[in-house]
Each structure stands twice: as C-alpha cells, then as structure tokens.
Amino acid sequence: MANRTLIVTNDFPPRPGGIQAFVHGLAARRPPGSVVVYAPRWKGCEEFDARQPYEVVRHPSTLMLPTRAVAGRAAALVEDGATVVFGAAAPLGLLAPALRAAGAARIVMLTHGHEASWARLPGARGVLRRIGAGADVVTYLGEYTRRLLTPVIPAPRLVRLAPGVDTGAFRPGAGGERVRAALGLGDRPVVVCVSRLVPRKGQDVLLRAWPLVLRRVPGAVLLLVGGGPSRRSLERAVAGAGPRGSVVITGSVPWADLPAHYDAGDVFAMPCRSRFGGLDVEGLGIVYLEASATGLPVVAGSSGGAPDAVRHGETGLVVDGRSHTAVAGALCDLLADPARARAMGERGRAWIEEEWGWERVAARFAALL
C-alpha cells in the first residue's frame, strides 16, 4: 500500500450525515486505487463499498474507538511512506503515534464541530492537545472553528479545509417537480429543511414558527426531509403547526434523491442552535451550501460556524435559531418577496461555484497529502 492514503474514520457512508459526505467526497476525488478507507460497518455497506473505486475495510462493529484492537487493525493497513488521514481528529486521532510507528510518513486530521466543542472543556482540551501533537496538519472548517482550535493546536499546523459541493448534482432543476408531484405539493410555496432530525438542527422551532408563517402566506408547506431520533416528537407536534397537509415529514431519503428534495423548495431553512452551553454546536452546515447550489435562499441559525456558510443579506439570512418569531419573520420576508428570494438564490449559486466547488476542495486536499 506504499504511497497510498489510508483514511481512518468513524464517519463514512452509507451512514448518513454531513461529515460522512465530506470524507467520502475527499476519497472519491483521489485517483482510483490510491485510497484505502478503514471505517465501521453500517447497514448497506457491502453494496456501497462495491461501487467505490478504492478499497474499503470495515471494522466488525458500528463504532471505532482508539483501542488497542482498532490500532492493530489500522496499523496492518499502513506501509512505509503512507499518508494517514483521520476523518475526524477526535477521538481516533489518539491512534496517530501507533500508526506513525507502523510506517506512516504523514498524518492529516480533519476537525468538525465536535472538536471545537472539545476545545472549550478543560479535560477534553488536554486530550485534543495530545491528538493535535500527533499530526502534521490539522484542518478547520471556518473562522469559528479556527478561533477555538488555535489555543490548543499550534497555528502552523492549522489549515482550512471545508466541504465541497457537487454543483452538478445540487443545481436548479435537479428534480423538484417530480418530488412536488409525488408529495402532492403542487405549486404551493415550500420551505424545505434537509437535515438529521435532532434538537440542534431546529426542526422543532420551525414547527413552532409555522402557524405564524401561515398567517402571512396561507397555503405554504413545510417540508422536513431526514430521519433521526426526534422524528416521533416532531410528528406529534405537527398537529398544532397548521392545517392538515401544511407540514410533510418524509423521513430518510436515498442520498441520490437529496438534490431533488432541495429543488422542491422555494426557501431552505435550518435554524440550528447551540445547546449545553455551546458544547453541542454547528460546525459549518453543509446543507446551507447544498441549498445555495440548488439556487435557494437560506435561513440559518446563528450556532457556531453556521454563519460561515451564509452571506447574510446576500445568499440568505442568519437569525437566532432559538426564536421562533425571528425564524418566522425571516421565512415570511422571503416567501412574500419571491424576486428577492430568487436573487438571493442566484447569488448563492454563483458563490458556491466560485468558492465551494469540489474541484477546488480536492486540490486543497491533494496539497495537504
């Protein structure tokens, strides 16, 4: 495996999620056969792995921790001169010394929102410092995460690497009409949220805001796309959010169908909020970038690094994700002014093409390797 890159990661498809998509996108854009991925098992992984142009080695369980057994399996995949990439620095970055001893010549670690949270806690901060000490390069998503990581990880090791967006897949006209027809939405105004259903993402706030939106924009539909532990509580809350049919929850949809679900909306909204004193925080929010690529104006919460994914007043609006009235106001402003919303979506698309395309991100990643 000499001269090939070993990616060690807990976050990898077919498990859904933004980090998973980020790491997969990096691997997929390396030359065929130049990457080996070591990741946990997940439902459907055999079919997924068979389609990849590189080898995927699956851990026996659905979670990898920095144990001796995981270190041994990872070390067996390393040959002299290899580069090792940790898909998330914490906690698997603790394996770096063992993989260095096994022959890794260079170690790159990606960080996301949870590493920024670790940097805020005294005990976890010490662990993160140990993790960073084993790396040649530690990446950060944006200014928010850089600011928190700098006191813990030496600044010369920090390099910005944010997710890319597939502008060929996420684009205006990606299949929204088909989704609207399948869900019976017709030509009604649609606010769409594509995200895992967990409290931080703010779908509960959208439901509290929705009656206020319907007062100004009767007939509007809230489309919640995704699965997660909050689904049952959200479904119970739908009854109080408006007339029957004014809220649609799809559950999880196949990855290939996500662009069409974005395209079914007129406005994208995910009013994320920080929780537990800032320990549960949004690192960036790839969904905002995917929505912009699809030509939608976005309404984002002000949690963590989410504002780095929106140009406030240009590609969307950043609001207090804890306030259902603020969220409702932003949604109403955009739904009631289609020309303004359309212009924001067009500026968002142009921004993504210029700054967030995968070709640019892949080139940055290649330089780090």
Rank of each mutant, 00 (worst) to 15 (best):
A2D: 14
G17L: 07
G17H: 07
V23Q: 02
A27D: 07
A28Q: 14
G33L: 12
V35T: 14
P40T: 05
R41M: 09
K43R: 15
D49Q: 03
R51I: 05
P53M: 10
L63D: 10
A76G: 14
T83L: 01
V84G: 04
V85Q: 11
A88Y: 00
L92D: 06
A96G: 12
R100V: 13
A102P: 06
A102K: 08
L110F: 08
H114F: 14
E115S: 06
L121K: 15
G126S: 14
V127M: 15
G132L: 02
G134Y: 01
V137W: 02
Y140N: 03
G142L: 03
E143I: 01
R147P: 00
P156V: 05
P156G: 09
T167L: 11
P172C: 04
V179M: 11
L183K: 08
G186Y: 03
G186W: 04
V192W: 01
R196T: 04
P199T: 04
R200H: 10
W210S: 00
R216D: 14
G228Q: 09
L234G: 08
P254N: 12
A260H: 06
H261Q: 13
M270Q: 15
R275N: 03
F276T: 01
G278S: 07
E290N: 10
T294V: 11
L296V: 04
A300Y: 06
A306Y: 03
A306W: 05
P307G: 05
D308W: 08
D308Q: 06
D308I: 02
G316E: 13
G321Y: 04
A328Q: 02
A330W: 00
L335M: 00
D337P: 01
E346L: 14
G348C: 10
E353G: 14
